[in-house]
Amino acid sequence: MLQMVKEVLANLSILISSAYLLSKISKTLLPHQSPLIHKLVMGLGSGITGIILMNFSISYQDSFLIDIRLVPLVMASFSYGGVTPLIAGVMIGISRLFYGLSPPIIGICFTYCLIGLSQYFISSWVKDKKAYLRLAFIFTSSIVLVILNFLIHS
């Protein structure tokens, strides 16, 4: 139990630290009109954060791994939109392939690339909506793909 608490604290520390560092690069939230180079940098930062979080998974009962690599992708889509979640999703998905080439791992790679692609289109569609609606659409579209991947491989 204590090990799980330590792993959760490590994941939260990584997430909060990266959110802080990325916020220092970007002075404002929701710069949908920001230059492409700014969105590329934010996508790279979010992707690197997701990869780091993937390496610090939380083990539950020594047989089940939990990681929160979806959180930087959702944050990138909510905060920056456009190409940012696409870059982060592709980076996280492709980095997962370095753990082997089994069907579940390929499915996870495909799922994260698909989440990034879906967020590319969804973020432009919901950018004029209220914050809670944007977050609900972004999170729902992401989690549905993860659940479908889980059901396919179960």
Score class of each variant (00 low, 15 high):
Leu9Met: 11
Ile58Pro: 02
Leu101Asn: 12
Gln119Leu: 13
Leu53Pro: 00
Met4Asn: 11
Ile115Gln: 01
Gly45Cys: 04
Lys27Asp: 09
Leu101Lys: 11
Leu15Thr: 00
Leu30Ala: 13
Pro31Gln: 09
Ile108Glu: 05
Phe64Asp: 00
Pro85Thr: 00
Ile51Lys: 08
Ala131Gln: 15
Leu29Tyr: 14
Ser123Arg: 06
Ile105Gly: 05
Ile16Tyr: 07
Ser95Glu: 09
Ile48His: 04
Val8Ser: 09
Met42Cys: 13
Leu135Thr: 01
Ser57Cys: 08
Ala76Glu: 06
Leu73Phe: 01
Ala10Asn: 09
Ala10Pro: 03
Ala136Thr: 10
Lys39Trp: 06
Leu70Arg: 03
Val90Ala: 05
Gly107Arg: 03
Leu86Thr: 01
Gly116Val: 02
Ser102Cys: 11
Phe137Ile: 04
Phe137Tyr: 14
Val126Asp: 05
Arg69Phe: 04
Ile94Trp: 07
Leu44Ile: 11
Gly107Tyr: 03
Asp128Phe: 06
Ile66Asn: 00
Leu133Ile: 15
Ser57Met: 12
Gln61Trp: 12
Asn11Pro: 02
Phe78Ala: 06
Gly82Ser: 04
Leu30Asn: 12
Gly107Gln: 00
Pro85Asp: 01
Leu135Gln: 04
Asp67Thr: 05
Gly116Ala: 04
Tyr112Ile: 10
Pro72Ser: 05
Gly107Cys: 01
Thr28Met: 10
Phe78Leu: 14
Leu21Ser: 13
Ala19Ile: 04
